[in-house]
Design a binder for these strands. Structure first.
Lengths: 160, 160
DNA sequence: GTTGGTGCAAATTTTTTGCACTCAG
DNA sequence: CTGAGTGCAAAAAATTTGCACCAAC
C-alpha cells in the first residue's frame, strides 16, 4: 500500500558501514516498512508467513535486534501484552493509551518539542524520543470517571 | 532505612474497599516500600528471601498485578533487561536513561507539567504519568558523539 | 462459613544459545 | 574465500493456570 519509506539510500549507507544485507533482514524490514504500524514479534512472524517467507523465530529475534542497533526501528512497550516494533520514518508520532478502555490515540511528535528543549537546556540531555506511549484516561473515560481500569497494565513504554 | 511511605491509612482504605490484606501482599508491599527503588520481579523475590519470607513466584506475579490494580505501584520498562516495579509515593519522579553508557539520571516530575497541560487541553486526555523513562544521550556521551550505543535497547517505558 | 488468595506442580509462552551450514561481500 | 548470519534443535527464562487447601473478613 504505502510507498517504501526506507530508501535504497539508507540500505546503501548500511552496506558501506559494513552491515550485511541478508534476505531475512530485507524481508523483516519489508514487513515493517509496509505495515508502517506497530508489530509484535508475533505479528512479524505471521506477516512473514503470509508473505511466504516463513523464518525461524530465533532469526526474527536476531534480526529485530539488529534493526534496533542500526537504528531503523523503534521498540515500544504499549503496556499491553507484548512489545511492539515499528519503522522509524519521518512520520514520527506517539500514542496516548487509555487505561480504562484501552483506546489508542495518536499524538503528534511536535507536542514533545518543548519537553525536548527543557531536557537539553536544563539536563544537558539529548533526548531521542522516537516512539513514546503515554497512559491516562481518554476523553470519554475521563468524564465517566471510571475508577477501575480494564486495562490495568502499562503506562508508557518507548524503546529504540 | 526510610520511613514507611505507604500509610496505614492507605491500607485501611483498601480494606474498606473490600480488598484483602494478606501476608504475601503486605510483605511484597513492605519490600517495595523499604527499597523505594525500582525492583524487578526477581529483585522482589530475592528481597523476600532475604527477609525470610520466601514465596512462590506465581504469588509474586499475582501480588504485583494486584498492587498495580489498586494503584500502589508503578510498572516501568527502563529498557534494560526487565520491567521494574516501584512504590508510587509523593516523591514522583522519572528517569533519563543514556543509550550510550546506560547511566540513569533522575528527572523531576514537574518538568512534565507543561506536557500534561497540553494533553488535557488539546487532546482531552487526562494523563497519568507516574513513572516515565526517557532515552537519549547524557551530558558526557552527547559530546563524545558516540554513535554505537552500548545500551541498544529501550527508549522509554512507564507503566502503571 | 464464604470467598478469595496461596502454594505447588505443570503447562505455556517467550527468548536465548550452540553448532553445522550457507551466503553476502 | 571467509566470516557473519541462518536454521534447527534444545535449553533456559519468564509467566500463567488448575486445583486442593488455607486464611481474611
Amino acid at each position: 500500500m504505502n510507498a517504501p519509506r526506507i530508501l535504497e539510500q539508507t540500505l546503501s549507507r548500511l552496506r558501506e558501514q559494513g552491515e550485511r544485507l541478508t534476505r531475512p533482514r530485507r524481508k523483516v524490514l519489508e514487513v515493517l516498512n509496509q505495515s508502517g504500524d506497530h508489530l509484535t514479534v508475533n505479528d512479524v512472524q505471521r506477516a512473514l508467513q503470509q508473505a511466504g517467507e516463513e523464518m525461524d523465530a530465533a532469526t526474527v529475534y536476531r534480526v529485530l535486534q539488529w534493526l534496533k542497533r542500526v537504528g531503523l526501528i523503534s521498540q515500544t512497550d504499549l503496556g499491553g501484552e507484548a512489545i511492539v516494533y515499528q519503522i522509524i520514518d519521518d512520520h514520527r508520532h506517539h500514542h496516548l493509551v487509555c487505561l480504562s478502555c484501552g483506546s489508542i490515540v495518536e499524538l503528534s511528535d511536535d507536542v514533545l518539542d518543548p519537553l525536548r528543549r527543557t531536557l537539553r537546556r536544563d539536563y544537558d540531555f539529548e533526548p531521542r524520543i522516537d516512539h513514546l506511549a503515554l497512559f491516562g484516561l481518554c476523553k470519554r473515560c475521563r468524564t465517566q470517571g471510571s475508577l477501575r481500569p480494564a486495562l490495568q497494565d502499562v503506562q508508557t513504554g518507548q524503546r529504540s
